[in-house]
Every structure is written in structure tokens, then in C-alpha cells.
Design a binder for these strands. Structure first.
Lengths: 174, 174
DNA sequence: GTCTATAAGGTGATAGAC
DNA sequence: GTCTATCACCTTATAGAC
């Protein structure tokens, strides 16, 4: 694995488990086993380091959108199923980005918004109702919210799938 | 308003709009218009300052639980309605706490978990199905997740209320 | 209850060697 | 592409005056 990727993995790990405050250049460099100078060769400053994480999120989001689009059981069920998966690469990147909310890192917020919009669009196209699509994506958002705190409860995918099935049936009845 | 409350309000404001990293003792003291020494009289160290925020969250959560319990249209609808309200005191405290996720502030995480458990309990008692109750609370969680990032879209309470009505009707049909 | 002054160490970033 | 050395500034916390 390249030093660049190792650095971003480490940044994610620290953001997830210790928070924004702990994610200093020193801490990231040490845990990624490069010197601070080495880190600053790949990312010339702190902002560029965060930018690297945002870029990674955008890449994952694009791949995930395609995955949802081509899923055999449809985007909606695939979205719920995958939202309940913990510790995937995309999951970790999303949670790490979640630690950077606020006005300070607008690119992080906009990357997340764009991804969410993709999901709402896919679900709405499939089940045909805007409010229901938003509610379903909101449940996925809720899972991420929960994953942001320690001792996140296990994500109960079966219960959620049943609930989504009810919503979908209700829309198709009109 | 007491200096103590002004300090906690300021801490919230900085956590919400600029993130954990910007919430230094210096920044909080300056914006709360006390000296750093003054701040450290009320909260002897950084941990105590965060503890003050967690205590505030617990108080709000207890009051909110009682409010849900005694709501004329039932806890479920009251929960959804109030989850869509932005910029209430409790809302701000929750979002500020959200910035502190991770293993670093376990009291923050456990205060949030306790509040969520209250809500699931109230909704389950009312509508009688665990998975549905969890899904409904998850939508509220999703609203908080969204509120953590800048340019949060307006929370569409009417659409959500309709969706919740569908779920409730489905459970009562069995 | 609030202030100023100050210590001790952390933090981001630069320069230049290898 | 990675390192060490170094600088200026930031951050937490303590001590003691008012």
C-alpha cells in the first residue's frame, strides 16, 4: 500500500476513534509510520490532508451509486442492506467525514450531500414517491449517526427491511 | 444569564459552527466574554467543560421525555414533530455533542444513547412493534445527522408524518 | 468571581540533507 | 520520496492579585 493511502487510512482511524482534535499531523504521521516531513510531502498542509479524505469519499460514493444502480434486488433494498454493513471502506470514510461537520470543511459537507442526493434519486425512481424515498434514506442516515458514537448498537437490518417493505407496498397501493 | 450558562452556550455555538478543533478554551472564553482564568474558575479543566455540556444534555433529555410522554397526540407524532424543529435548545446541545463522538468522550455517547433508548421505549409502548419503533427513531436520528453538516436541507416534517402514519396503520392492522 | 501573567508542552509548517 | 532540525505560534493549566 502506498504511503499516501496509509496516511489517509490512519487519518480515518484517528478521526473515528479519537475525534477531530486528536487528528494532528504529528499523530497521523506517527501512526502511519512516516515522519511529519514525509506526510507533508504527500499533503502540503492540513487542508490538503482533509481534501484527500474528501476525494476518497467522492470516489467511494461514485462506485457505490453504480453498485446500487445495478443491484439485482433494486437500489432501495440494496441501500438498506449496505447501510447496515459496518466497517466497510466507504462506511469508515463516511464516519470519519462526519467528524468534520460544520462550516469549517464545506467540501466534506457537500460531498456528503451529493451522495445523499444520489441515494434519494435512486430510491425515488424505484418506488415513485418523494417523501417515502426521503424517509428511507433518512433511516440510513440515522444508522450513520449512530455509528458515530462509541458502543453503536448492532444495526438491525432485518427489521428495517420489513419496515421498508411496508412503505414500498403502501406506495404501490397508492 | 450566568457566566456558566454563557460559557456553555458559547461552547455549543463553536462546536456547531466550527467543530471540535476550534473549541479551545481561549476561543470559548473570548466569545463568552470572560477571561480564560474566569472560564477555568467555573470549569477547572477542559474535561469539566465538556462534562457541563453533557449534564445540560441530560437535563434537556429528561424534560423532553416528559414532554413526549404527556403529549396530546402521543409520543410518536410528538417525537417526529419535534425532531424536525431546528435551533431549539435541545437541538443545539445534541448537535454540539455530536461533534464529540468517538471513544474520547464516553459520557457524551452514553447520554445520547440513553436519550435514544427513552424514545424507542416510548414509541414502542405506543405503537406496539419494536422494529417499527426503531425505524421511526432512526428517522429522527437521520435528521440530526443531516443537521450536523452545513446547509442542512429543511426538515420536511409533513412528508415524514405521513410516512409514520403509514407505518403505524400497518402495525395496527397486524 | 474574575482578572493578568506565565510556565510547559503541543502543533503546523519550512528548510535543507540524503 | 522520506528524513531531521528548527521556528513561531497555539493551547492548557497554574499561581496569585484584586
Amino acid at each position: 500500500m502506498s504511503a499516501r493511502d496509509r496516511i489517509l487510512d490512519t487519518l480515518e482511524a484517528i478521526l473515528i476513534s479519537e475525534g477531530e482534535r486528536a487528528a494532528t499531523l504529528d499523530a497521523v504521521a506517527a501512526r502511519a509510520e512516516v515522519s511529519k516531513g514525509g506526510l507533508l510531502y504527500h499533503f502540503p498542509n492540513r487542508e490538503a490532508l482533509i481534501g484527500g479524505l474528501v476525494g476518497r469519499a467522492r470516489n467511494y460514493a461514485a462506485a457505490y451509486r453504480d453498485e446500487l444502480r445495478s443491484s439485482p434486488d433494486g437500489p432501495t433494498l440494496a441501500y438498506i442492506r449496505t447501510s447496515a454493513e459496518t466497517n466497510t471502506d466507504f462506511d469508515r470514510t463516511l464516519i470519519a467525514l462526519g467528524r468534520l461537520g460544520g462550516d469549517q470543511h464545506p467540501e466534506a459537507a457537500s460531498a456528503l450531500r451529493a451522495a445523499q442526493q444520489d441515494w434519494v434519486d435512486l430510491v425515488r425512481e424505484e418506488i415513485g414517491d418523494e417523501a417515502t424515498a426521503r424517509a428511507i434514506v433518512l433511516m440510513g442516515d440515522g444508522l450513520y449517526y449512530n455509528a458515530m458514537f462509541q458502543d453503536a448498537p448492532p444495526r438491525d437490518v432485518d427489521g428495517l427491511l420489513r419496515v421498508v417493505e411496508v412503505l414500498r407496498a403502501s406506495v404501490s397501493r397508492g
